[in-house]
Write a protein that binds this DNA or RNA. Structure first.
Lengths: 107, 107
DNA sequence: TATATTGTTCGTAAGTTTGCGAAAAACAAA
DNA sequence: TTTGTTTTTCGCAAACTTACGAACAATATA
């Protein structure tokens, strides 16, 4: 309990998980992952929330590295950041699939 | 944008993700997933935070369904909730592995 | 230059999270 | 009954999140 910190892996997966920790952001990710055209307006139409809020969620996903945006005046095109998506995929897969739940703790 | 809501899957995965969205909680999950003995005290020793805070994080993980606790007076034994762990594993795996990032959007 | 389109940022309100120490609960042991 | 052990709950402060409408920015088009 003195100087202990968290591992880079724990910090990174928590970062991704936090970004995924809201239904609206999951809906955005689902949408982007299934679309070729992914303009802000299209995303906004998919969601039951105000523009400003959508923009905010997109910003968080971008900051977590899961998506990226590109201006295509006058629109903005968003999409999955494939490199980080792959990283996240790997981290989550490892986390869940290390088959560490073999033990008999708690029956 | 009228009455749209989120799918059950989006809501459920967001719930799991939110619980995983803090390094301390990831550390707890990592620890529980690798241990046979998983008493509160052991978990607390692993973490750089106060007892009260650990207890709070454990409560959140429990409410998300990822872990479970069992009183073994005077201690409390925590462990992974294997059923929900499997569900979470499936949801995250599907989410990331649907290979939906094939498109050329954003280069 | 005015007007329209598309998104972002600002300001604000309400609610949630994270963290702590102190107190309480639950029980066993002296 | 007092004391000790282990964990939770309480009360609080500070920070962050979620959401909105209004205002703004950037650029096309009339």
């Amino acid at each position: 309990m003195e100087d202990k910190k968290y591992t880079n892996e724990q910090t990174q997966i928590a970062r991704f998980a936090k970004a995924m920790g809201h239904p609206a952001r999951m809906a955005i990710l689902d949408f982007l992952a299934s679309q070729e055209n992914c303009y802000f307006g299209d995303i906004h139409e998919e969601l039951p929330i105000a523009k400003a809020t959508v923009s905010q969620h997109l910003k968080e996903l971008k900051e977590a590295g899961l998506i990226q945006g590109e201006i295509e005046t006058p629109k903005v095109k968003y999409c999955i950041n494939r490199e980080n998506w792959a990283l996240a995929s790997k981290l989550f897969t490892n986390f869940f699939c290390e088959c560490r739940t073999k033990k008999t703790c708690c029956g």
